[in-house]
Write a protein that binds this DNA or RNA. Sequence first.
DNA 1: AAATATTTTTAGTCTTGACTAAAAATTTAT
DNA 2: ATAAATTTTTAGTCAAGACTAAAAATATTT
Lengths: 218, 218
Amino acid sequence: MMFTLSEENYLKAIFHLQTVSGKGISTNAIAKKLETKASSVTDMIKKLADKEVLTYIKYQGVSLTDLGRKIALGVIRKHRLWEVFLVEKLNFSWDEVHDVAEQLEHIKSTKLINELDTFLEFPKMDPHGDPIPDKEGKFQKIEKKLLSTLKENQLGVCVGVNDSSSEFLKYLDRYQISLGQKIRVVSKESFDGSVTILINNKEMSISQKIANNIYIQS
Amino acid sequence: MMFTLSEENYLKAIFHLQTVSGKGISTNAIAKKLETKASSVTDMIKKLADKEVLTYIKYQGVSLTDLGRKIALGVIRKHRLWEVFLVEKLNFSWDEVHDVAEQLEHIKSTKLINELDTFLEFPKMDPHGDPIPDKEGKFQKIEKKLLSTLKENQLGVCVGVNDSSSEFLKYLDRYQISLGQKIRVVSKESFDGSVTILINNKEMSISQKIANNIYIQS
DNA sequence: AAATATTTTTAGTCTTGACTAAAAATTTAT
DNA sequence: ATAAATTTTTAGTCAAGACTAAAAATATTT
Ligand SMILES: [Mn+2]
Ligand SMILES: [Mn+2]
Ligand SMILES: [Mn+2]
Ligand SMILES: [Mn+2]
């Protein structure tokens, strides 16, 4: 069975939504994620249900089947391996890779992706700290929490981001926040949720929104 | 101005047809090359004429504009660079690269293709002996003739192929014909045009069709 | 110079994946 | 328990890019 670029993007989006909110995924949630209209989503999920990659009950949202999950993980594997390639071999920075990887993830060739994996020496993480599924779709889930959940005086290491947009990543670069960076929470402001952190012996304040998009391992 | 995958394929096909038959390219020739119908071609060339990448006079075929030529060369550059990448870095053989390159050639990112070029150390030829245009679309045209045009007892080096199909390339592999291989014409059979050649001190006979698809430099 | 054959274009249809507007179902508020 | 608000589905439209069948133009024979 073959899947179009559009179908692959739907499966990927639904997979990502499922990993956060365990329940059935709503039409609206999918529409929002894919920046499309709810009616378009209804059309597409009917087609995907016919192809048996998800189950769909009217008015009750959708849920991926094992096959659907497998296909989504295949696309995610390709996306992340290409991101590693771009950073490691082609001098891209972590804020430049996402858009190109969105295109590359749809190239169809099992040999291509498995040879790429070998060429890169089987990386386990992409440039944003996200795990790369192996051939069988298996990947380790790493322990991580949002920076905003740390208490005053707690220490952690940045291990990922919750937002891969170029804007956010460039912001992090500007403040020397990269994967592996040690971060200590100095104080938290209850008024606006902003956090004062210590990085490389320098104190700085970041907004709650920023703190909500940085993953930390203690 | 943005071009779709389909539009890029039309431009590439027309470019290739133009390099062999200098004149205006007929609707039918394009249809044949792209394995589509003449009516579909008429539709598309109207659109491409609107976009000013080719000139089109009803019933008289088409001809690329400078812009059209530039875009076609960009796609060809990408195709060939990806082919080099697949062979040099990902253990593909020359008969496996074409289909994947057909997909990769449509990825849009100037940084990607220029960094890939750098990573590969600016190759001048693809795995089939075809020249790779540089950023500006410039490439050297190499001197080459068909093996079938050699006279008895003449010697040459294989520098390219006229057919990149997997079937043909596998045939060449089987008979140890690869780029750089020295080939001597021992005799030619006027009855069926077949050629007896000497390769690595071994004599073998190849059909006229095969001899018509191997490029030689004397 | 007609007649015939071939090529090219036009007209109309189909599929995919989107959209808007309106109807129907469900959820939340009163 | 109704009413109001929200979500979801349906119905109808559109553009891209393909297709078939038929008409029109051009090329080739006789
Ligand atoms: Mn990404
Ligand atoms: Mn990533
Ligand atoms: Mn090729
Ligand atoms: Mn090639």
